[in-house]
Design a binder for these strands. Structure first.
Length: 479
RNA sequence: GGGGUUGUAUGCUAGCUUGGUAGACUGCCGGCUUCGGGAGCCGGUUACCGGAGUUCAAAUCUCCGCAACCCCA
């Protein structure tokens, strides 16, 4: 039997499935640089979609785009102590140009706080200059030493980095909910991806921040992975970079700052969560091809079937991304399998039957169900199916997430839940000591403290030490 | 951070133990016949991860890199 190069493992063998799905779908590829991957057109389309919708939401919220240099002079990079300690081991440096050594090393940005705030300090002089809300789309390099995984842990990744400055702490804090809402909406509305929003614990927060917030996902292997994040930096960077302004009373004050990001990692989480044994399942809104038409004919019916297929293809609105796959060197079954591997949301099968009956057979990638529809109002019908597919994908992923969370009251329960590769939701006293012990003994990290489960926590006891609880935390093994 | 496995063409893989002409399937290109779930026949096409060493001779043995994967912390 002729075989094209499909995935040869089940999704239950997750690591192997994941790489094969990404590579064999031709969405991504390895490159010659370890830890750096190639985004091929269908994969890059997903990132372009995320960018487009996030960017629009940012702009509607008053954020403006700018662009800062890729290279950061060592002097600047070292200004904020915690920040440099957090990033130093992973920073790549430019030390030489041609044959001459540089007098001062230049860091390839692992994140741009330092180079941006150097400029911001020059621009912010008066309360009238605030708030200053900037964003840039770029890539950063963090030289990970753990073995890289495409999209999930790469040495170069693409992201947005929002950097904002405010006159007061209250104003700075009020931005948080809006930004996390934007990220959640992009994840839900475009990637059909549910996550858990919450605050990071002290020990898991961003290097240089006062407090950090994140949206976390659960992967098919039961491990959690961090998605978009938001950091209240307080006046930490303002003090290090001298971002001062005169307020309305003529007093010289440091600004309050935030930073936030969404990265290409969310694509990896999305592909992993939605995919199945046959390959990728792409949410309709971010799929470069939303509908593929596969004509099925023999010599006798060829002309009739192709002309009906072409007619249907032309009837479909331009805002639906459709491909007529009429290349005749592959059999229909071969095409079915290829498009399924690549996760095309809807497939229209057109043969002599459909042509005679003036109907279409439509198959949905997520459910693999086929349905025969009348050739009438097809744009409405197809749009509805794409919409429904998105809703169903989100709901399915949401159920998986919800089922993975177990509320635990005792440490034994916590250990059991972690062994089952699930999320243990537990009350916690807030001490780093308990958090570290739990991590050392169970390998589970605190992912975050979900916003929506904190009520009544003061009546509970810490799952580890039994003292009065301050937070409800999710513990899970994580990437 | 520690331990392990593996690198042969687009992919999957044989050959490695015991050094001696690198083989199948798939893909890709051309042709004919086909086409409702991975079509058939004919012809063509592509490879030993990189470097060093041992040797008359290295895909095979040794060392060093590089890369991918797995397990444990």
């Amino acid at each position: 039997m002729a075989q094209f190069d499909g995935i040869n493992v089940k999704k239950s063998e997750f690591s192997e499935w994941y790489t094969q799905a990404l590579i064999k779908s031709e969405f991504f590829d390895y490159s010659s640089v370890s830890g750096c991957i190639v985004f091929r057109p269908d994969g890059y389309f997903i990132w372009e979609s995320i960018q487009k919708f996030t960017d629009l939401a940012f702009k509607n919220d008053g954020i403006r785009n700018a662009y800062f240099p890729l290279l950061i002079p060592e002097k600047l990079f070292e200004k904020e102590k915690e920040h440099v300690e957090g990033f130093n081991p992973e920073v790549a440096w430019v030390m030489q140009v041609g044959n001459s050594k540089l007098d001062e090393r230049l860091a390839i940005r692992p994140t741009s706080e330092t180079i941006i705030y150097d400029s911001v300090s020059k621009w912010v002089k008066s309360w009238r200059d605030l708030p200053l809300r900037l964003n840039q789309w770029c890539s950063v390099i963090r030289w990970e030493f753990k073995h890289p995984t495409p999209l999930l842990r790469t040495r170069e990744f693409l992201w947005n980095e929002g950097h904002t400055a405010f006159a007061t702490r209250e104003e700075a804090n009020s931005e948080r909910e809006r930004i996390l809402q934007i990220y959640s909406a992009v994840l839900k509305d475009y990637l059909a991806l549910p996550g858990i929003s919450g605050q990071k614990t002290e020990s898991e927060k961003f290097a240089g921040a006062e407090s950090s917030y994140s949206i976390e996902f659960i992967m098919p292997d039961g491990k959690m992975i961090q998605g978009p994040d938001f950091h209240n930096d307080g006046q930490n960077f303002a003090k290090a970079f001298d971002i001062k302004f005169f307020d309305k009373d003529g007093k010289n004050q440091y600004a309050y700052q935030n930073t936030f990001a969404i990265t290409t990692r969310v694509i990896g989480a999305m592909l992993a969560i939605h995919g199945d044994d046959r390959g990728l399942v792409i949410p309709p809104k971010v799929s470069r091809i939303q509908i593929v038409i596969v004509p099925i004919y023999n010599n006798e019916s060829k002309d009739e079937v192709l002309s009906y297929s072409t007619r249907i293809c032309n009837e479909i609105n331009k805002d639906l991304r459709v491909l007529l796959d009429d290349i005749d060197i592959y059999s229909p079954g071969n095409k079915f399998n290829r498009h399924e591997l690549r996760g095309v949301p809807l497939r229209i099968e057109i043969g002599i039957k459909e042509s005679r009956e003036n109907t279409l057979t439509v198959a949905r990638r997520d459910t693999m169900k086929k349905e025969k529809i009348e050739n009438k109002d097809i744009n409405d019908q197809l749009s509805r199916m794409l919409y429904q597919m998105h809703e169903d994908m989100y709901k399915k992923a949401k159920d998986v997430l919800n089922n993975a969370i177990s509320i635990v009251n005792t440490y034994d329960e916590l250990k059991k839940v972690i062994l089952e590769a699930k999320i243990a939701q537990a009350a916690w006293c807030g001490s780093e000591k308990c958090e570290k012990k739990i991590k050392a003994e169970t390998l589970a990290k605190s992912t975050n403290m979900p916003f929506d489960v904190q009520q009544g926590v003061e009546k509970k006891k810490c799952v580890y030490c039994g003292n009065a609880a301050k937070h409800v935390v999710n513990f899970a093994k994580s990437y």
